[in-house]
Amino acid sequence: MLSIFHSLEISHYIYLSTVLFSIGLFGVLFRRNAIILLMCIELMLNAVNLLLAAFTEYMGDMQANGQMFVFFIMVVAAAEAAVGLAIIVMVYRNTRKTDVSFLDQLKD
């Protein structure tokens, strides 16, 4: 790592990823479009990925365990995006909507 970055601390990355995570969470809560919801979830996952990468760097992890986790999270995220989008397409085909406010069948 370049020397100008030596003043960086793990805590900065923690704050950054926490903020990112919260923004994603806010999006999940606030938005109604199911696709945007999925995107916000991706954002939250990326916040976590960033934190894991930072931990790998700052915790002296020779095995790169954190980065391994990032890979697996990416895999799961990709699978989730594929299935989630398929579901959204399906829902859209049946209801002509991607608005989660109208999907209130759970109470039945």
Binding site: V28, L29, R32, V100, S101, L103, D104, Q105, L106, K107, D108
Partner: peptide
């Protein structure tokens, strides 16, 4: 319990 996931998320 209104069946709407938005509320559930909150």
């Amino acid at each position: 319990q209104n069946g709407n996931i938005e509320y559930y998320l909150i």
